[in-house]
């Protein structure tokens, strides 16, 4: 289980000493339960990728604490951290650059497995067996892919190889950051289904980072969804609740932006758009979403509302005036 409390990450802004710092993450709390599915959604630059990288140990944090299986990361030495972060593996967005083009798939999977064999005290012939087993698990034919180089495989196959490679070290958590956005549409669902199956069959928990709410729903319908805006969680609850009954206007804008398949769907009656584009350089007082919020009132400029269940909502949210709005597309009557 991964528990993050009050995670803060600030980057120095552009322009030297006079620049304003960029708040990538502001006091983020989250929990990834064993075998659970958690999704982060938000627009580009909201901090969802930074958060994923921190959870994988690829990035440090300035404040708060990250606890992996009961061990607080910031109190551990580098050498003690490594085996902890080994349990958390990342699936990158781009399967075209995530694999070494000069090595065959046999090598790409064989090397980490050789290391793993030494760790586990297994004989050398265990490697080939395990390699075939992992490829079977991700739906690839070992006879076909093992002698090949990455460029000889389709994007979907490459992403399966990337997933197989992540599985070589027996992870407990997979972090998938926009893992299907570069894959052909007809192959995407196969990868999403694979991630779902790995969770149900191996009990691997899944952290799914995306701007595409529909794929987050597919992968983790029974899981939890965090809506992140400018580094802060603005809505969090069960995936179904947040998608079907969002109460924060930012979540509602995100859900409204999903293209409507006219003919079989109709736009939700309350579909809305933000008043203005994101101005990253401006830090408004009070609620960060206020300048773009169609429902902002004067006192929204006051204190930023903390994440809570104001108004007795099922999910947590950070809005002073939570209101349920029907923004998600609905099946068309004549379909």
């Amino acid at each position: 289980m991964i528990v993050a409390t009050g995670i803060t990450r600030t980057f120095a802004g552009r322009g030297g000493r006079r620049s304003t710092p960029v708040h990538a993450l502001r006091q983020v709390d989250l929990t990834i339960p064993d075998g659970g599915a958690v999704s982060f959604i938000g627009e580009s630059g909201c901090g969802k990728t930074t958060l994923g990288r921190i959870l994988c140990g690829l990035e440090g944090f300035d404040g708060g604490e990250l606890t992996i299986d009961g061990q607080p990361v910031s109190r551990l030495r580098e050498r003690q951290r490594a085996p902890l972060f080994r349990r958390i593996q990342m699936i990158h967005q781009d399967p075209y650059s995530a694999l070494n083009p000069t090595r065959t798939i046999a090598n790409i999977l064989g090397d980490p497995l050789a290391l793993r064999a030494r760790q586990l005290g297994k004989p050398d012939d265990w490697i080939a067996g395990r390699r075939a087993e992992l490829l079977g698990l991700v739906g690839l034919d070992p006879g076909y892919v093992l002698p090949r180089y990455p460029h000889m495989l389709s994007g979907g196959m490459r992403q399966r190889v990337v997933i197989a490679r992540a599985l070589t070290v027996d992870p407990e958590v997979l972090v998938a950051d926009e893992a299907v956005s570069m894959i052909d549409v007809s192959l995407r669902l196969g990868i999403l289904r694979l991630l779902r199956d790995l969770r149900s069959e191996l009990g691997i928990s899944l952290l799914f980072i995306t701007h595409d709410v529909a794929t987050a729903r597919y992968v983790g319908q029974d899981g939890e969804l965090y809506v992140i805006y400018r580094g802060a969680v603005v809505e969090h609850g069960s995936t179904d609740t947040v998608i079907q009954r969002p109460v924060h206007p930012y979540s509602q804008c995100l859900l409204s932006a999903i293209p409507v398949l006219r003919g079989i769907e109709e736009p939700g009656p309350d579909r809305l758009i933000p008043l203005a584009p994101l101005e990253e350089r401006v830090e408004p007082p009070g609620c960060l979403f206020r300048p773009r919020c169609p429902f902002a009132r004067d006192d929204c400029a006051g204190r930023q509302p903390p994440l809570g269940r104001l108004g007795g909502t099922e999910q947590e949210h950070a809005c002073r005036y939570p209101q349920n709005r029907e923004v998600v597309a609905v099946p068309a009557a004549n379909a």
Binding site: D184, V185, S186, L187, R188, L189, R217, E265, P331
Partner: peptide
């Protein structure tokens, strides 16, 4: 039909989504 069925949607039954076999 296959493309449409392979799109995860925001409403409706997710189990109706079907991946297209093979590759382009």
């Amino acid at each position: 039909r296959g493309l449409l069925a392979a799109m995860p949607r925001i409403t409706g039954d997710l189990e109706l989504a079907r991946a297209l076999p093979g590759r382009p």
